[in-house]
Amino acid sequence: MTPFQYARANDVADAIKQIATDPSAKFIAGGTNLIDLIKYDVEGPSRLIDISHLPLRSIEPTSAGGVLIGAMVPNTDLAYHPLIEGRYPLLSRAILSGASQQLRNMASTGGNLLQRTRCFYYYDTATPCNKREPGSGCSAIDGVNRINAILGTSEACIATHPSDMCVALAALEATVHVTGPAGARTIAFADFHRLPGNTPQRDTNLEPDEIITAIELPPKGFSANYSYLKIRDRLSYAFALVSVAAALELDGDTIKEARLALGGVAHKPWRSSAAEAALLGQRADATAFAKAADWLLHGAKGYGHNNFKIGLARRAIIRTLDQAARGTPQSNSDKKIR
């Protein structure tokens, strides 16, 4: 671990000012990922700027009919908030399927978006990794890649984004509010995270001197027909091998609107407009779900150990859409997949 200095930011403007004066500084909120990375010498900031006390802790309805979530709202507070449990249960279920209650108590909403990958090689400083050390090579492509990506990969990186919350936020088409030296701007959730390409060191389109202030949910929460199914190596407290967020709007048996996002398979929550379009106007049945799964997994490629993810994802997509259509979302405590 590299020694670092510590400073507390008094408000958002102060936080932006402080980060601008020291490019090797980092913001810290919940710290659940950053402290771990510092301990492993993957991160070595000169200074931590504590933003955990910023007044960004409210969850409020917006005039547009959605909900605005402060970036410092702890994951548990978000998951259990009546507005979220009632109107956006997909988000609630996704959050509660990630990490442990202790970590969810610590982790912030904004920080959840900025989690780094859990690729073994990113954490192992003895091995090359283009995300940790650009240009050094990717150890996962020909290495132990059971947990790695099958979609949107590049020759430089096959890491996945580890968040569950973000898979639901992608499906719900949330908006990320950020502020930087040039002022405030919003980023559509689909544009927030990046594919690795030749710059896998950049996970997101957030600039280094910008700070996330809030996440906005649009009015539609799909609270009647949704499910979040997470497949992992143990039944709780493990990252997803494959996860699926499915949300449907039904008119009888007919699909009027569909949202589908995958976790654990790509550098960002994975969506496909073709997959969602393929469900529109269709009867909500296994045939339609299988077609959507094929579209969503179009171009999927295994790297050896993770070949199983393609078939697993296909079956998980079909099952999750079925759960959503039946109005019987996957339970987080009863682990049976029905």
Partner: peptide, 26 residues
């Protein structure tokens, strides 16, 4: 010491957290 086992769990302001991933200064 990496937030994976829970042996370090304490209550901070009434909530359980992993003390190994918490900076005392915060």
């Amino acid at each position: 010491d990496h937030g994976q086992c829970g042996a370090c769990t304490v209550l901070v302001d009434g909530r359980r957290i992993n003390s190994c991933l918490t900076l005392a200064v915060m």
